[in-house]
Protein backbone atom coordinates (compact mmCIF):
# COMPACT_ATOMS: atom_id res chain seq x y z
CA UNK A 1 0.00 0.00 0.00
CA UNK A 2 1.68 3.13 -1.11
CA UNK A 3 -0.06 6.19 0.13
CA UNK A 4 1.23 9.62 -0.49
CA UNK A 5 0.11 12.30 1.85
CA UNK A 6 -0.70 15.66 0.49
CA UNK A 7 -0.71 17.16 3.91
CA UNK A 8 0.58 20.57 3.16
CA UNK A 9 0.51 22.88 0.26
CA UNK A 10 -1.95 21.33 -2.13
CA UNK A 11 -4.87 23.00 -0.57
CA UNK A 12 -5.45 25.98 -2.80
CA UNK A 13 -5.56 23.63 -5.70
CA UNK A 14 -9.23 23.49 -4.98
CA UNK A 15 -10.50 26.44 -6.88
CA UNK A 16 -13.98 27.59 -6.06
CA UNK A 17 -15.84 28.97 -9.01
CA UNK A 18 -19.01 30.59 -7.83
CA UNK A 19 -21.99 30.78 -10.07
CA UNK A 20 -25.14 32.56 -9.07
CA UNK A 21 -28.40 30.79 -9.10
CA UNK A 22 -31.74 31.72 -7.68
CA UNK A 23 -33.78 29.01 -6.13
CA UNK A 24 -37.49 29.03 -6.86
CA UNK A 25 -38.84 28.47 -3.43
CA UNK A 26 -36.15 29.35 -0.97
CA UNK A 27 -36.66 32.88 0.26
CA UNK A 28 -32.96 33.65 0.39
CA UNK A 29 -30.42 33.59 -2.41
CA UNK A 30 -28.16 30.61 -2.78
CA UNK A 31 -25.18 29.89 -4.91
CA UNK A 32 -23.51 26.93 -6.50
CA UNK A 33 -19.94 26.17 -5.60
CA UNK A 34 -17.73 24.04 -7.77
CA UNK A 35 -14.44 22.76 -6.41
CA UNK A 36 -11.98 21.35 -8.86
CA UNK A 37 -9.15 18.91 -8.10
CA UNK A 38 -6.30 19.63 -10.49
CA UNK A 39 -3.48 17.29 -11.38
CA UNK A 40 -0.67 17.78 -8.92
CA UNK A 41 2.47 15.89 -9.80
CA UNK A 42 4.21 14.16 -8.12
CA UNK A 43 1.62 13.30 -5.46
CA UNK A 44 -1.45 13.30 -7.61
CA UNK A 45 -0.55 13.08 -11.28
CA UNK A 46 -4.01 12.11 -12.33
CA UNK A 47 -6.99 13.06 -10.15
CA UNK A 48 -9.20 10.73 -12.17
CA UNK A 49 -7.52 7.88 -10.34
CA UNK A 50 -8.90 8.98 -6.99
CA UNK A 51 -11.22 6.33 -5.54
CA UNK A 52 -14.89 6.80 -6.41
CA UNK A 53 -15.74 7.08 -2.74
CA UNK A 54 -13.92 10.43 -2.59
CA UNK A 55 -16.25 13.18 -1.50
CA UNK A 56 -16.14 16.70 -0.20
CA UNK A 57 -18.17 18.16 2.62
CA UNK A 58 -19.16 21.71 3.47
CA UNK A 59 -19.73 21.94 7.19
CA UNK A 60 -20.93 24.66 9.45
CA UNK A 61 -22.94 24.89 12.64
CA UNK A 62 -26.20 23.10 11.99
CA UNK A 63 -25.56 22.18 8.38
CA UNK A 64 -23.54 19.66 6.46
CA UNK A 65 -23.47 19.37 2.68
CA UNK A 66 -21.77 16.55 0.87
CA UNK A 67 -20.85 16.12 -2.77
CA UNK A 68 -19.28 13.17 -4.55
CA UNK A 69 -16.39 13.46 -6.96
CA UNK A 70 -17.75 13.91 -10.45
CA UNK A 71 -16.27 12.53 -13.64
CA UNK A 72 -14.82 15.98 -14.36
CA UNK A 73 -12.88 15.81 -11.05
CA UNK A 74 -15.11 18.40 -9.45
CA UNK A 75 -17.27 18.62 -6.39
CA UNK A 76 -20.47 20.56 -7.04
CA UNK A 77 -22.45 21.99 -4.15
CA UNK A 78 -25.82 23.42 -5.06
CA UNK A 79 -28.02 25.77 -3.06
CA UNK A 80 -25.30 26.94 -0.71
CA UNK A 81 -26.59 29.79 1.40
CA UNK A 82 -24.66 32.59 3.07
CA UNK A 83 -22.17 31.74 5.76
CA UNK A 84 -18.75 30.48 6.56
CA UNK A 85 -18.03 26.85 5.76
CA UNK A 86 -15.30 24.34 6.34
CA UNK A 87 -14.38 22.35 3.24
CA UNK A 88 -13.00 18.87 3.79
CA UNK A 89 -12.11 16.38 1.11
CA UNK A 90 -12.46 12.82 2.34
CA UNK A 91 -10.39 10.35 0.45
CA UNK A 92 -9.00 6.95 1.35
CA UNK A 93 -5.71 7.33 -0.50
CA UNK A 94 -4.81 11.00 -0.26
CA UNK A 95 -5.03 13.57 2.49
CA UNK A 96 -6.26 17.02 1.59
CA UNK A 97 -5.80 20.01 3.81
CA UNK A 98 -9.05 21.67 4.87
CA UNK A 99 -10.18 24.94 3.39
CA UNK A 100 -12.22 27.79 4.75
CA UNK A 101 -14.90 29.01 2.40
CA UNK A 102 -17.02 32.09 3.01
CA UNK A 103 -20.14 32.81 1.02
CA UNK A 104 -20.64 36.55 1.43
CA UNK A 105 -22.99 39.19 0.04
CA UNK A 106 -21.20 41.32 -2.52
CA UNK A 107 -24.01 43.77 -3.17
CA UNK A 108 -27.75 43.88 -2.91
CA UNK A 109 -29.97 44.44 -5.87
CA UNK A 110 -32.71 46.45 -4.19
CA UNK A 111 -35.03 46.54 -7.18
CA UNK A 112 -35.27 42.83 -7.64
CA UNK A 113 -34.72 41.99 -4.01
CA UNK A 114 -31.79 39.79 -4.86
CA UNK A 115 -28.44 39.48 -3.26
CA UNK A 116 -25.34 38.89 -5.26
CA UNK A 117 -23.21 36.31 -3.54
CA UNK A 118 -19.49 35.95 -3.75
CA UNK A 119 -17.17 33.23 -2.53
CA UNK A 120 -13.88 33.64 -0.72
CA UNK A 121 -11.62 30.78 0.17
CA UNK A 122 -8.42 30.43 2.12
CA UNK A 123 -6.42 27.99 4.15
CA UNK A 124 -7.65 27.29 7.62
CA UNK A 125 -4.27 27.91 9.21
CA UNK A 126 -1.22 29.41 7.65
CA UNK A 127 2.19 27.82 7.70
CA UNK A 128 4.91 30.44 7.76
CA UNK A 129 8.15 29.64 5.95
CA UNK A 130 10.02 31.28 8.80
CA UNK A 131 8.60 28.86 11.32
CA UNK A 132 10.85 26.08 10.06
CA UNK A 133 13.88 28.14 11.16
CA UNK A 134 12.59 27.94 14.72
CA UNK A 135 13.38 24.26 14.72
CA UNK A 136 16.66 23.68 16.65
CA UNK A 137 17.69 20.80 14.40
CA UNK A 138 17.42 23.00 11.34
CA UNK A 139 19.40 25.73 13.15
CA UNK A 140 22.14 23.29 14.19
CA UNK A 141 22.45 21.84 10.74
CA UNK A 142 22.60 25.33 9.28
CA UNK A 143 25.47 26.30 11.65
CA UNK A 144 27.41 23.19 10.73
CA UNK A 145 26.75 23.85 7.04
CA UNK A 146 28.08 27.37 7.49
CA UNK A 147 31.21 26.01 9.17
CA UNK A 148 31.68 23.37 6.50
CA UNK A 149 31.49 25.77 3.60
CA UNK A 150 32.77 28.92 5.30
CA UNK A 151 35.91 27.59 7.02
CA UNK A 152 38.04 26.89 3.89
CA UNK A 153 37.04 30.29 2.51
CA UNK A 154 38.07 31.89 5.79
CA UNK A 155 41.44 30.11 5.84
CA UNK A 156 42.08 31.08 2.24
CA UNK A 157 41.42 34.70 2.94
CA UNK A 158 43.79 34.87 5.94
CA UNK A 159 47.06 36.67 5.54
CA UNK A 160 50.07 34.32 5.39
CA UNK A 161 51.38 35.11 8.88
CA UNK A 162 48.15 34.46 10.62
CA UNK A 163 47.65 31.37 8.56
CA UNK A 164 51.00 29.96 9.59
CA UNK A 165 50.19 30.70 13.19
CA UNK A 166 46.82 29.03 12.88
CA UNK A 167 48.32 25.92 11.29
CA UNK A 168 50.94 25.80 14.06
CA UNK A 169 48.18 25.90 16.63
CA UNK A 170 46.32 23.14 14.81
CA UNK A 171 49.42 20.97 15.16
CA UNK A 172 49.78 21.72 18.86
CA UNK A 173 46.24 20.65 19.47
CA UNK A 174 46.44 17.64 21.85
CA UNK A 175 43.70 15.93 19.92
CA UNK A 176 45.71 16.09 16.71
CA UNK A 177 48.80 14.80 18.47
CA UNK A 178 46.93 11.83 19.80
CA UNK A 179 45.39 11.04 16.42
CA UNK A 180 48.73 11.40 14.70
CA UNK A 181 50.33 8.98 17.15
CA UNK A 182 47.59 6.45 16.68
CA UNK A 183 48.03 6.46 12.95
CA UNK A 184 51.83 6.24 13.29
CA UNK A 185 51.52 2.60 14.33
CA UNK A 186 54.97 2.30 15.93
CA UNK A 187 53.90 1.98 19.52
CA UNK A 188 50.93 -0.31 19.28
CA UNK A 189 51.06 -2.66 22.27
CA UNK A 190 49.12 -5.27 20.36
CA UNK A 191 51.41 -5.00 17.37
CA UNK A 192 53.68 -7.95 18.14
CA UNK A 193 51.10 -10.22 19.63
CA UNK A 194 51.87 -13.83 18.79
CA UNK A 195 48.54 -15.42 18.16
CA UNK A 196 49.92 -18.88 17.57
CA UNK A 197 51.84 -18.83 20.79
CA UNK A 198 48.87 -17.54 22.67
CA UNK A 199 46.69 -20.32 21.32
CA UNK A 200 49.34 -22.89 22.10
CA UNK A 201 48.99 -21.97 25.76
CA UNK A 202 52.33 -20.21 26.14
CA UNK A 203 53.13 -16.54 26.56
CA UNK A 204 56.20 -14.37 26.37
CA UNK A 205 56.56 -14.27 30.14
CA UNK A 206 56.50 -17.93 31.01
CA UNK A 207 58.27 -19.17 27.92
CA UNK A 208 61.61 -19.36 29.60
CA UNK A 209 60.39 -20.93 32.84
CA UNK A 210 58.38 -23.57 31.13
CA UNK A 211 61.31 -24.98 29.31
CA UNK A 212 61.39 -27.22 26.30
CA UNK A 213 57.83 -28.24 25.92
CA UNK A 214 56.47 -24.90 25.04
CA UNK A 215 59.27 -23.93 22.75
CA UNK A 216 59.25 -27.29 21.04
CA UNK A 217 55.65 -26.85 20.16
CA UNK A 218 56.23 -23.46 18.69
CA UNK A 219 59.21 -24.58 16.73
CA UNK A 220 57.49 -27.68 15.50
CA UNK A 221 54.74 -25.55 14.19
CA UNK A 222 57.13 -23.25 12.43
CA UNK A 223 58.93 -26.05 10.75
CA UNK A 224 56.00 -27.55 9.03
Amino acid sequence: MHLTSLLLPTLLALLPTPTLSKHHHAPHTTTTITLRVPALPPHLPNPSLLPPSTRATLTTLGAALSAPLSTANTFVFRNVSRGSYLVDVHCLTQAFAPLRLDVVVLDVDAERGEEKLGVQAWETYRVSVLSIFKNPIILLSMVSMALFFGMPKLVENMDPEMRAEWEERQKENPMNAFMGAASGGNSNPMGNFDMAAFLAGSSNNNKAEEGNGGRAKVEGKKKR
Binding site: L3, S5, L7, C91, L92, T93, Q94, A95, A97, P98, T124, Y125
Partner: peptide
Protein backbone atom coordinates in the same frame (compact mmCIF):
# COMPACT_ATOMS: atom_id res chain seq x y z
CA UNK B 1 -4.26 21.97 17.18
CA UNK B 2 -4.96 20.27 13.87
CA UNK B 3 -4.90 16.49 13.88
CA UNK B 4 -4.77 15.21 10.35
CA UNK B 5 -6.22 11.79 9.77
CA UNK B 6 -3.18 10.25 8.20
CA UNK B 7 -4.17 7.65 5.60
CA UNK B 8 -1.36 5.53 7.02
CA UNK B 9 -3.12 5.30 10.37
CA UNK B 10 -6.33 4.05 8.79
Amino acid sequence: PALEIDPKSV
